[in-house]
Write a protein that binds this DNA or RNA. Structure first.
Lengths: 391, 391
DNA sequence: TCTACTTATGGAACAAGGGTGCGTAATGCC
DNA sequence: GGCATTACGCACCCTTGTTCCATAAGTAGA
């Protein structure tokens, strides 16, 4: 709007506005009638007709067969948004995995993929694994690389505004990698990179536990606990991309989260890294403690409660700073109905000023990749609905 | 824009867009020529002419005398934004004062006012003092109450989204007051109420130390230390209006800020409240310690440093949570070149992950009232430039 | 099978807004 | 006093969108 109100406009901007409105209504799904569409958008039928033929020329809309037999009168022409006119791709690159989701322009996920990567892989090897995974995914569903409109990737650590890994303690050889540029070489479309907790927040708001919440915080409890925040409906990154890192204050207890649980097992007895490279020894140990707590092992349960009490201070600091509507707790250490989330639900509110809902993630390990997908889809939407330049 | 893209538009919305764009260009100040204006907005001269005559009908624009003698050719008609077509009012209501600023539609401050209120005044008395102060201010400059387009007020404590004082430890008898409704009775225009630190943040961004910074935090060091945050260029209030209250965590050391300094003087020797009711005994004592530190008193200086070290944790928590571009420190306890700000500048960065500028407020005691004014002016701007309804 | 009714279509006539171009008015300079 | 210069005011045309109406293409009932 600001762009719009700065420079005045020809009648053509009116057409662009109406095209965007029509596209938006059409993308809601279904195969509306011309008249239905006109009524919904608030335009006359002839105008809508003109807009639609223009959108058809751009390849974004097709006419579908009219449905006869339903109702009285002459069957109406029906139109459909061509969701397959383009695709968006979301990546999750972490210490042990590469995860991918591909969606069409409707945001419908059409394919997913997963590949294990060794913890101690070099940055080059990790990027090669990404390249292979992407190629496999695209080949499986038969989507051309040129059909991608936007790509986004999430990764642990602090990601600078230019998409460089400014800080990363979790993935070896990862710090300093200009990830956006490296990935940019693989795709003929814009590539965005962001912190994993930030993207998990986007995902939870999109199709997870925080649907339609405009002010929420997502806690990603993994080896290190990161947080992402949606503020006023928009992802907040901070000046240097480091927002949500309250864990740095030692007294707020968000560092080495998994290690607190793992300490139960004497370090000498920790198993070596799994052969599939899917999780490190600390994560494995932590997950065993969580499982034991779930089974009713009282020593393990106490350890979980202690972890929750430790984490509560950091989470409360974030809640006090932002006063969010809700906090979603996710990451490797969390499953729905978990003892950890229950413990946090007891430990955090007493430290807060306002009632804040605490929910477990419903997306599990897919959260980050889905969030990356959502970020890419946001870019797609911006492209679809932009009105400040000729199509 | 979203509003715009949802419902399609007549040619009339085009006119509204162009009117808004022209008004925006015109309000930049000066008395531009018709052609200059047309060039700047990107419209043709006849169109601009039509828009201007419409704006003149609405009383927002006047033609001024052409300036002959300057340059060749026929003198051009010149136009001016009628800043006096309306006014905005900002209030600061705190424990000891009522402060007011009145501005025209250009945001130019045309009058200010200040009145002392006794600390132990009842809510009713405090509101009466506000009413009197407003009447005096308006009478002084000869502005009708009906000429007010928007009013905003700042006050210590947590202000709920509906404008109720949900929590306030600083002003007696203030908690629970439905301030927005009470003030609403005094004015025939919208009235907004917000937390004082939030408004101070707005003010510092508008004409203080944080000009044009879209991500900043304002620390208001008074009896209790509050914080306000601008995120992505917009004020962040939180779901319940309680954002920025990290001070609640005891280990973050933002509670009873002034008292830390005042403790130097044994409580028995504290002077009684000043006859003018302008400051409480604790504030007075705190200010004496600050002044002593400024003069070089080493004991006082050490006390200030200790306070800074205490506050640093809370400020760092906020900085880590939000990763702002800069932090502005203001409030009663701060003057430019102060030892407190210097001490914070040393104490905070080591706790942070990213380089964050720390600056002293340049607005002094006016910050909150100016921020309230800015909030009211934002509402004025929204009204001036709205395009989603007929004028 | 034919007729009446219903609903959508397609195009013509009309209105609003914006751009272009040209004759004309008002000023400064020589 | 004439000329160059600059801006004005108006007429004309294009784009976009709306209203209105005759017509087409179905269904339901006789």
């Amino acid at each position: 709007m600001s762009e719009l109100s700065l420079h005045g406009g020809d009648p053509s901007v009116l057409r662009r506005i109406n095209a965007a409105a029509t596209l938006r209504a059409l993308r809601g799904g279904g195969e509306p009638t011309l008249s239905e569409l006109a009524r919904e958008v608030g335009l006359s039928r002839p105008t809508t007709e003109g807009v639609l033929s223009e959108l058809a020329d751009r390849g974004l809309v097709t006419e579908v067969a009219p449905r006869s037999g339903r109702g009285l009168g002459r069957p109406a022409r029906r139109y459909r948004f061509r969701a397959d006119a383009g695709y968006a791709l979301g990546l999750d690159i972490d210490a042990h995995h590469v995860r991918l989701f591909l969606a069409d322009l409707d945001g419908e996920v059409v394919a997913g993929h997963h590949a294990a990567v060794a913890l101690n892989a070099s940055a080059t090897e990790r990027l090669a694994a990404v390249r292979v995974a992407v190629s496999e995914l695209l080949a499986t569903v038969g989507v051309e690389r040129g059909a991608l409109w936007a790509v986004a990737a999430g990764t642990p650590g602090v990601v600078s505004p230019e998409g460089r890994i400014a800080l990363c303690t979790v993935v070896p050889d990862w710090e300093g990698v200009a990830l956006a540029r490296e990935l940019g070489r693989m795709f003929p479309c814009p590539v965005l990179v962001d912190n994993d907790a930030n993207l998990a927040a986007l995902a939870e708001r999109w199709r997870g536990a925080a649907r339609d919440s405009d002010d929420m915080v997502c806690v990603l409890a993994g080896p290190h606990t990161g947080m992402g925040a949606i503020i006023g409906g928009r992802l907040h990154r901070g000046r240097w991309g480091a927002a949500g890192e309250v864990g740095l204050l030692p007294e707020l207890g968000l560092r080495d989260t998994a290690a607190v649980l793992a300490e139960a097992a004497p370090s000498g007895t920790l198993p070596a890294e799994d052969s599939d490279g899917t999780a490190g020894p600390v994560e494995r140990a932590a997950e065993r403690v969580l499982a034991a707590a779930q089974r009713g092992d009282s020593a393990a349960a106490e350890l979980v409660d202690r972890l929750a009490a430790r984490m509560a201070r950091g989470i409360a600091a974030m809640a006090l700073a932002l006063d969010p509507e809700m906090i979603v707790v996710g990451g490797r250490l969390v499953r729905p109905g978990d003892r950890l989330v229950e413990a946090l639900r007891r430990a955090v509110p007493p430290l807060c000023l306002t009632p804040v809902r605490i929910e477990a993630s419903t997306l599990g390990e897919d959260a980050v990749a889905l969030g990356a997908l959502r970020l890419a889809l946001d870019l797609v939407d911006e492209e679809l609905f932009r009105i400040d330049r000729p199509a």
